[in-house]
Simulated scan of single mutants.
Amino acid sequence: MSAGARVAVVHPDRETLARVTAARLLVHLVDRQSLHRPVHVALTGGSVGIAVLAEIAGSPLRPAVDWTGVHLWWGDERFLPDGHPDRNETQAREALLDELEIPAANVHPMVGPGPGVSTPEESAAAYASELAQHAPEGAAVPALDVVLLGMGPDGHVASLFPGHAGLQVTDRAVAGVHGSPKPPSERVTLTLPTLTAAREIWLVVGGADKAAPAARGLAGDAVTTTPAAGAVGVERTLWLLDADAAG
């Protein structure tokens, strides 16, 4: 398999997609821990992304991972106050993190508005600094072993939307987003160069409304019209689809 090759795996329904992706991730973490530590993973939100985390919480494979050697990041976040129910972090904590045996210092949420942080750009700068603290010498970000991404019906990933200015950001690891076509309008996102520096990217996609952009993404459409097409990992890119999203 060539570096960055796109591979599609189709599951019969959304529930199976979430369950098998959870098992796949747990096994992958165990495999990675046999090679190096720590292991870095970027999580995603959305209904399927959170369902994957809930499946991890109940999986008998969960204890096989040494969670003290895992660092959890996020691909994007809504610029909302910490604890807001619409934040990806809040939903992830409820689905999995609150009962996970992982040091608090290994969980890296994007900070919301509050003391010292009044704009998405300030949150992005703080997150870029935190990423850099865990990066190897000379790099801006750690070598993310797996980035989990959902995809919108418009083909967006993280908070990188078709035709949006964020797609053009190449000089920063993390960017603030204004005017998002999907509410809320203000967000924080990993940039495309950060995503494509990951060892593996897994796009976890369910629903018939995702079939057309999934086809475009797998075909290597222009990033400006289908941002998911640009989400390609260094070693492997997995499109994990339910039957509806596979069309």
Rank of each mutant, 00 (worst) to 15 (best):
I102A: 14
L53G: 11
G112H: 01
V70I: 15
E77K: 08
A140Q: 10
P181T: 01
P183K: 00
A92K: 03
S129H: 12
H84E: 10
M151T: 07
N106Y: 03
P181S: 02
A139R: 07
G163L: 05
A125M: 09
W74Q: 11
P136N: 06
G83N: 07
T189M: 09
H178I: 03
L131Q: 04
A132G: 13
V157D: 12
A64R: 05
P184D: 06
V147Y: 05
V48P: 14
R187F: 12
T68V: 06
I50M: 10
V48I: 15
G112T: 01
S123P: 06
P60T: 04
V177Q: 07
L96K: 05
R172E: 14
L80N: 07
P85T: 01
A57Q: 09
P183G: 08
V147P: 06
E94P: 01
R62A: 15
E130P: 02
A105V: 11
V141D: 06
R93P: 13
G83D: 14
L148E: 14
A92V: 07
S118P: 02
T68F: 08
G166F: 02
A158V: 04
A92F: 09
L149K: 00
A140M: 09
G179L: 05
V147T: 10
E77M: 10
R93T: 12
V52Y: 05
V107Q: 05
P120E: 04
H84N: 13
A57I: 02
L53R: 00
